[in-house]
Write a protein that binds this DNA or RNA. Sequence first.
RNA 1: GCCGGUUUAGCUCAGUCGGUAGAGCAACUGAUUUGUAAUCAGUAGGUCGCGGGUUCGAAUCCUGCAACCGGCACCA
Length: 644
Amino acid sequence: MISVTFPDGASRQFEPGVTGLDIAKNISPSLAKRSVAMTIDGSLSDLASRLDRDAKIEFVSREDPRALELIRHDAAHVLAEAVQELFPGAQVTIGPVIENGFYYDFYRETPFTPDDLPAIEKKMREIVARDEPIVKEVWTREQATAFFHAKGESFKGELIEAIPAGENLNIYKQGHWLDLCRGPHMPSTAKIGGAFKLMKVAGAYWRGDHTKPMLSRIYGTAFARQEDLDAYLHQLEEAERRDHRRLGREMDLFHFQEEGPGAIFWHAKGWTLFQKLVAYMRRRQALHYNEVNTPQVLDRALWETSGHWQTYRENMFLTKTEDERVFALKPMNCPGHVLIFKNGLKSYRDLPVRIAEFGVVHRYEPSGALHGMMRVRAFTQDDAHIFCSEDQIMDEALKINDMILSIYGDFGFSDVVVKLSTRPEKRVGSDEAWDKAEAALQKVLDELARRGLKTSVQPGEGAFYGPKLEYTLRDAIGREWQCGTTQVDFNLPSRFGAFYIGADSEKKTPVMVHRAMFGSLERFTGILVEHYAGHLPLWLSPLQIAVCTITQEADDYALEIASAARKLGLLVELDLRNEKITYKVREHSLAKIPVLLVAGKKEAAERTISIRRLGSQAQTSMALDEALAALIAEATPPDLKPLH
RNA sequence: GCCGGUUUAGCUCAGUCGGUAGAGCAACUGAUUUGUAAUCAGUAGGUCGCGGGUUCGAAUCCUGCAACCGGCACCA
């Protein structure tokens, strides 16, 4: 007999080989009916799994959050079954659960189009209605290979080959259809319920490798309850509403056009916002960094020295002059900064040398990668390079980290993930140097984790010259974007022959720490717009106040307000148009102007002002001087506030 | 770069079977002097993404290219 313990601490004895379903039935028929899976010693498992030894088990109902991945995984299988029923010859590959749903990749001569989705979804609902029992079988490798080979499923065949010898091959059957799958699954297709939806089709490379065939991927999502699905779809709509590309147009910040793919046309308001960010960053780093500026176009020879010509050329904009000399637009600022460091003899006493630049870089990104302001071909980095000794790396990296977090905090970002990317296969430099660099960054990462930050490690994802810490933020629809970064580089300084004189009078090669905090000013602006849903805080808003009159009789007073506010440094628009106040309120609200100051006859007589804030219907009336003082205080950038 | 989709007025979108374009909003003009998210009336606005082709005739059909959108791959 084996002993099975339940969450409440009670335990019961069963014959070895008893299934979860048997146990549930033994407890109560309703429990058996309600359960779609169980956990065995904490890990999710089929209800039909057999127990051979003592274990702690817990039954999982369909409504349990842990069942969500089962619902989605089962939905992926049903999607595959539906596709193969409707489109004979479509080959199955893999169909995992992902963050907001699931997908299944198929191989098919003609890829699926969005028009195919309704029919597939309809078929899926049929399969769910059939309530096909989902049954696991364990096959031998030969059996599985023969089966999928006979069906012409070459991709599955490849997957089977990749499974280590000696491991069981699990086959999950539902009705006449079956798939090789790790599981677990729910007992039958009806458990999926009706709260699912196919979302989109997309191409995806087999095994994520661009040298391999392109598969046709169908994305879907599924939830336990219809209201959860509805809420999710609603959330997607909301995200679309705060998409920076849409808000950028509505707020008149910038535009793109065909002639400059991946290049931003900044409008006056957008550029004001951009410059506010630059000014903010300048103040933040003024004490520790020396700001410089380096050439936009540099000779090919320089890029050969840096290694960019050999490893980065396909991403570079090249230009040839009349006399056949080849130049490149800089894709990075580092070589320029090394040259500034090299210009003049440096002593160990000078270290660390910190050189900063709001450097505009051009990168010829693949056309398919472009994405609004988040991924462009010309962008501005708040870049800096720190030339220091090896034993200064740790200290510098920690300082950078503190500054990045403090800066993100000023913008209300708390959902920051810091990722350590370690040595890639293709790299330069000695293992000892890598050990030191990674250890330093790992130490920083540990410290961050200790402080409660989300951290992770991405093995092999580092730059060829060194490991890096990547600071990522999320956009409106949950996409993660890398912003800040700290990279440790043992390579470039020596390639350029940069050195300093050590305490022993010997020439030493400095270590170079690359760092950016916003990363790309353009991307950061995009993230900000989405983060605030266009409701920029007063200090960032490129147009802070609209002074609106109710009647022309208030024009003089409104003029006085506007000029007083402008004298105080506030960005003010004066709206004296002969329009109804409701019209003006609507228009300025749509333009996302943070503060509306409304003046009518009453205000003019009393020297007060009616204040209406973006996003609120409320109006408050206040003495003019008082209102301006409050607005000035609010419009002060966070780093200039007394308590910063 | 790869797969799929899209491209018609400043914006959002109609446009049937191939017969050389339409709405709402925005803009402009006039009237309205207005109390917190749309006052009324009128006017103007388009080489239908670009280039080829088929046709008596192309926004519509075929074809090449570009940009954009969603993914993949790549990356700040």
